[in-house]
């Protein structure tokens, strides 16, 4: 099993397997294949250790992935919260940030439904 950037890659086509790394999607996976001149459709287990080394190098040098990317995102959110702007307040409250409706839906941000008992007569 190949390990890149601290993630175990499944035995799939390179362009798919690379997307298991946080920060690499389909688009940048194909880009990486072009840069390393590896056929995006070969499966991971057939790659030589040299190929893997090249992949590692390109990802290491040119992409922000996994931990570093996560801290960057977290810092960006923290900055918004610290300056007390509207987006920061929304993050603090765990509500949608980009102006979506909250009368209904918004369950991704608000989490599972908390049912409130209706008033008794």
């Amino acid at each position: 099993m190949a390990r890149i950037a601290g993630v175990d890659l499944p035995n799939k086509a390179v362009k798919i397997a690379l997307t298991y790394i946080y920060g690499i999607g389909r688009c940048s996976a194909v880009e990486i294949c072009e840069k390393t001149k590896i056929d995006p459709d070969t499966s991971i287990n057939t790659l030589s250790s040299d190929d893997l080394a090249v992949l590692r190098k390109v990802i290491e040098e040119e992409y922000k992935v996994e931990g570093r990317l996560r801290t960057e995102v977290a810092l960006n959110i923290k900055r918004l919260m610290d300056i007390g702007c509207y987006r920061g307040l929304r993050h603090r409250k765990g509500l949608p940030v980009n102006g979506q409706r909250t009368k209904t839906n918004a369950r991704t941000r608000k989490g599972k439904k908390k049912t409130v008992a209706s008033k008794k007569k």
């Binding site: 610290d82 300056i83 007390g84 702007c85 509207y86 307040l89 409130v116």
Partner: peptide, 24 residues
């Protein structure tokens, strides 16, 4: 206004709604 706020809009720092919680 501090250095960090540059690039934002003034309105972002002046909330227009106050949520005081639900009655229950």
């Amino acid at each position: 206004i501090t250095e960090n706020l540059v690039g934002h809009k003034l309105g972002e720092f002046s909330p227009t709604r106050i949520f005081r919680g639900h009655a229950s």
